[in-house]
Structure formats: structure tokens, C-alpha cells
Amino acid sequence: MIDIRHLSLWYGRSHRVLSDINATIVRWRRVVICGASGSGKSSLLRCINGLERFQEGTVHVNGANIQDPKVDIHRVRAGIGMVFQHFELYPHMTVLENICLSPIYVLKKKRTEAEKKAETLLTQVGLLEKRNSYPAMLSGGQQQRVAIARALAMDPEVMLFDEPTSALDPEMIQEVLDVMIDLARAGMTMVVVTHEMGFARQVADEIIYMDQGRIIEKNDVAQFFDHPQNERTRQFLDRIIR
């Protein structure tokens, strides 16, 4: 469903962030992207929904070339949920309003319908009683769960997670991972940038390891952990799983 071909991205003239990325994300599969900071993982994720404009290559989402001016990028984005490292809830809106904004204005749903769906999703992430709270009144873990519910409210075909637990206190990481594990079990197509290797082993079908803007290794999860092909991957795993 997502097809990335020969993708290269520069910041300015000289700083090359991504080099010749090729990857296919198949429907119903969970792909985890890992690698050191600055290896281009987050940039790659932002290229998928057109938040980052790249200079070379193509990204097709369900057959639509996202940098084609004829393609309605808003419509493509509406079908792709995204969760950010720093949650990015709208601070001036309640939890419920946060979740309902895009369904109402992008999907043109009725408010009552959108709110009903939002309440179902909040129940799913265990935060129904917080529906009238403002984001500032929630813990980091709760905010991130709301952010996940907000993305799910659009009925996305795929969810992108950009280091969803990196900004959280350690004791809150698991509650967010649990929500993501549930989502994976429910069959959601997911692309997750994370350093949580335990989570990766548990839910991923495929792992992509990136370094300096290149894909170094792309493999099934078992192969990746037990028989890494590349020397750098081996070093990375040694460092992480100690």
C-alpha cells in the first residue's frame, strides 16, 4: 500500500538526509524502523504523508503519487494516521475536541457522530473519563494515548508512529506500548520508528535498520534479531540489547 522508490531528501544544498530509500509497506503488516538519532528515520516517515517535500524519487500511497500536484494530498493524509514524539495535542481544545476536529472538518462528519466515535476510541485507550480535560491536565502517557485515539478517529488505513515513547517518563512507556500492541493485534498496518526493541520483537513483521540516511538492513523480525546480516546492525543490536 505504500511504495517508496529511490527516495532522496536534502536539507539545503549539501546536507543529504535520505539517500536512495527503497521500501514497500504491505497492508496488514507492521514495520519497525530503528537506527541511531539523525539516521533519517523521522524524515522518512514525514516523506510518506508529504509533510516533508523530497527532491528525488517517488512515494506512492495506494497508487497515488503523493508529490503529483494533481493528487489531493489532504485526502491522502486523511487516510494516514500519525503520532508524534511530543504528542502535539491542540492545547486550546479538550480531549474530545482534539479527537473530533479532523473527523468534523475533513471527513465532514456530524458532531454527534464524531463524538460518539471519539468516546468509543477513548474507552479503547482507557481515558473516557478524561474527555473534557485539557491536554495540560494529562500526564505524558495519557496525552500520547489521546493522540493515538485522535489519529484513529480518521479511520486510517495505516498508522505512522514517530518515536511515540521517546518523550515519556519510563513508567508511562508501557501504557502507550500496550495501546499500540492492541492496535497491532487488531490488524492495523503500522510503521513505527522506535528504540523499543522489546516492542519491535513482539509486534513487528519486518524491521528496517537505518544509518546515515540509508537503509542498511531490511529483514523479517526473527532474522533481524537472530541472524543480522550487516556488521553495523550487529553492533547496533549489541549496544541495544545489553
Binding site: R77, I80, H86, L101, S102, Y105, V106, M154
Partner: peptide, 27 residues
């Protein structure tokens, strides 16, 4: 990040300004 979040959720530039950015800016 607020711009990113709004755009990622499918809002148009105008909707983003109207519902996400301006209310916070005015504050």
C-alpha cells in the same frame, strides 16, 4: 509541531490556521 499535527490529520492550510494556529496565536 502543531502545524505538522494538523496537516497530518488532513486539515487544509486554511482549516489549520482557523482552528489550530490562530486560536493559540491570539492567546
Amino acid at each position: 509541531g502543531q502545524t505538522m499535527a494538523g496537516l497530518a490529520a488532513g486539515l487544509t492550510a486554511f482549516q489549520l490556521m482557523r482552528h489550530v494556529i490562530l486560536p493559540q496565536a491570539v492567546r
